[in-house]
């Protein structure tokens, strides 16, 4: 699999570290404790065939965190954006 880092260009996937589901929102620490939301943030994951938005960090390159939208059935990469623009 190859990913195109917006800074460095197209590279093999083993230059990157996979960091999981990018759609997760860490529950707001200031809000009242919500055990269900905490549990879901840590353990529950959706697996939509329509596409995964996932975090990849360019570990052997520029160390930028990317959000990759990938089709899990065909592996086609639909988009790659910076996680923190």
């Amino acid at each position: 699999m190859r990913l195109t880092c917006p800074h460095c260009g197209e590279r093999p996937h083993d230059e990157f570290a996979y960091r999981g589901d990018a759609t997760l929102r860490r529950p707001d620490p200031a809000a009242p404790a919500d055990p269900e939301a905490e549990h879901s943030f840590v353990y529950l994951r959706d697996n939509p065939v329509a596409g995964h938005r996932e975090h990849w960090l360019h570990a052997f390159g520029c160390r930028t965190l990317l959000v990759v939208t990938r089709d899990p059935a065909t592996h086609a990469i639909r988009s790659i954006e910076l996680a923190a623009p």
Binding site: A17, R19, A22, R26, H55, L57, A59, R63, T64, L65, A83, A84
Partner: peptide, 13 residues
């Protein structure tokens, strides 16, 4: 290192 880089960009950008 990965942990720090991830937390910085994903949680505290």
């Amino acid at each position: 290192h990965l942990h720090f880089d991830f937390q910085r960009q994903a949680r505290k950008p």
